[in-house]
Design a protein around this nucleic acid. Structure first.
Lengths: 236, 236
DNA sequence: TTATCTATTTATAAGGC
DNA sequence: TGCCTTATAAATAGATA
C-alpha cells in the first residue's frame, strides 16, 4: 500500500511475502491492542505462519483463552450471525468499489456536459458537431438548472412577501442565477441577455422530449441510455 | 489518528468511543483479511463489544474454530513463547520512542554545532561567547570531519596509484573537501585559505584534549557529559 | 537477513448533515 | 444515529544499506 498499490492477492515472491507478513503482522497486533485499549473491550487475534513454529497471538495466552471460552459457549448458529466472513467481506468491497466508479463516472459526465453547455452559450447556438447522446444529456442538465433556478426564485419570492407583505410579479434574471450557480465558470466572457420567463420556459425541453416521470433521474453514468424519444436505432 | 493525534487510552466520551470502535473494528477486520490473503496464512480475530450481542469474528466461524483448535492443542508454555502480550508490547513502544528521541536529539545537536563551526569559519576565529560544552562538541565535530577527509584522501590516493602507477606525495585541499562534504552550507561567503597538512593536523584537538579511546563515540545527545578534560566543577 | 528510508496509500478523528 | 467529507496521522511497498 505504498510506493505502489498492491493487489489483494497471494504474494508469489517468497521474500516479498515474508517481508509483508512481518510488517503487517506487527501492524495488526498493534491495531488489536489499540482497539482494546481505546474502547475498553475484549479482543484477540491469532495468526499462524510458516515462519514461526508457534502462532502469534494478542493479547496474552490467558486473555485469548478467556475470549475463546466465551466464543465457544455460543451455539454455532448464533456465532454466524454478526460475523464478517471473507465472502461477505469481499462482496462488500467489490460493491463499494463499483459504487464509487459509478458515482465518479456520473460526476465526470456532468462536468463534461456542463462544459458543452457553456461552449454553446459562448457560441450563442447549439454546436453543429454535438452528438445526439450529448444533446440529450445537455437537455437534462439545462432542465435541472432551470428547475433549480425556479426553486430559488420561489424561495426568494416567499421570503420577500413575508418580509415586506408586498405581492408583486417577479421578473427573474436568469443569466445572473446561472452565474451564481455555476461559480466555477465565471470570467469566460459570458454576459448574455438571458432574461426569459423561467416560469413559462422551465420545462421546454422536457416537454419536447416527452420524457414522462423519468426526468428526475440522472441520465449520466449510462452513456448508452435511451430515453424513448430518440430511438436506439437512430444511433446505429 | 487524524485531525488530531489521539492518546492511546480509554476514550471516556461514549459517542466518540462507539464511533471509534466501529471504524477501527472495520479497519481491523480488513487488515486480518488482507494479511491472510496476501500471505496465504491462517488467522483469526475475535472482538467482543457492548454494542453487539455477538462477538465479531474473522474469517468465518469454521475458520475461527479451526484456528482455535490448533491453538488449543498446544501446551500452555509453548503458547506463551512467541506471544506478543500487552505488557511487552507497551515496553517495546516506550523503548522505541525513547530511542527515537535520543537519535533526534543527537542529530539536532550535531546540526547545531555544525552551524557554530561555520560561524567560526566565517568570523575567522573561535567566537568569544561560545560555551565550554559547545567547544567540546565543536572539537569533536571538527575532528570527525578531518578524519573523514583523511579517509577520502587515502582512498583517492590509492585509486590514483593503482590507476596511473605513479607514486607521488599528495597535497590535499582541505577547504575544498569540507565544501564537498558540507553541501548544505555552500554559498555563505566561505572561501578561506585552509590548505593545511591534514595528515599532520587531524588529531590536533583530540590530542589537546587527551581524550583517550573515547574520541570515537558521539558526544551529542548527552549535553551534560564530561569528557574528563574539563572537570564538571568547571561548569558550576 | 534485517534495519532504514521515503513516497504513497490507508486509516481515521473531527465536523457537518 | 449514521453516513460523508476532509485534513492528518499511520501503515507500509519497494529500494537501500
Amino acid at each position: 500500500m505504498t510506493r505502489k498499490k498492491v493487489k489483494l492477492a497471494f504474494i508469489v515472491n517468497d521474500a516479498s511475502r515474508k517481508a509483508t507478513y512481518k510488517k503487517r503482522k506487527k501492524g495488526l497486533m498493534k491495531k488489536v491492542g489499540e482497539l482494546s485499549t481505546l474502547c475498553g473491550i475484549d479482543a484477540c487475534a491469532i495468526v499462524y505462519s510458516p515462519y514461526d513454529p508457534q502462532p502469534e497471538v494478542w493479547p496474552s495466552p490467558i486473555g485469548v483463552q478467556r475470549v475463546l471460552a466465551k466464543f465457544r459457549r455460543m451455539p454455532e448458529l448464533e456465532q454466524s450471525k454478526k460475523m464478517v466472513n471473507q465472502d461477505s467481506f469481499l462482496r462488500q468491497r467489490i460493491l463499494k468499489a463499483k459504487e464509487q466508479v459509478k458515482k465518479q463516472s456520473k460526476d465526470n459526465r456532468e462536468k463534461e456536459i456542463t462544459q458543452v453547455m457553456f461552449q454553446c452559450l459562448s457560441a450563442g447556438k447549439i454546436l453543429p458537431n454535438i452528438s445526439m447522446v450529448d444533446l440529450n444529456d445537455l437537455a437534462w442538465l439545462i432542465d435541472q438548472n432551470l428547475k433549480d433556478i425556479n426553486r430559488r426564485i420561489e424561495t426568494l419570492t416567499k421570503k420577500a412577501q413575508s418580509q415586506a407583505q408586498i405581492v408583486a410579479p417577479v421578473v427573474p434574471d436568469v443569466a445572473a442565477k446561472i452565474e451564481e450557480k455555476e461559480e466555477g465558470c465565471h470570467g469566460n466572457g459570458l454576459d448574455l441577455d438571458m432574461n426569459i420567463d423561467a416560469m413559462e420556459k422551465q420545462n421546454w425541453f422536457t416537454n419536447l422530449l416527452n420524457n414522462g416521470g423519468g426526468d428526475e433521474a440522472l441520465p449520466f453514468g449510462d452513456v448508452n441510455h435511451s430515453n424513448g424519444f430518440w430511438p436506439n436505432s437512430f444511433f446505429h
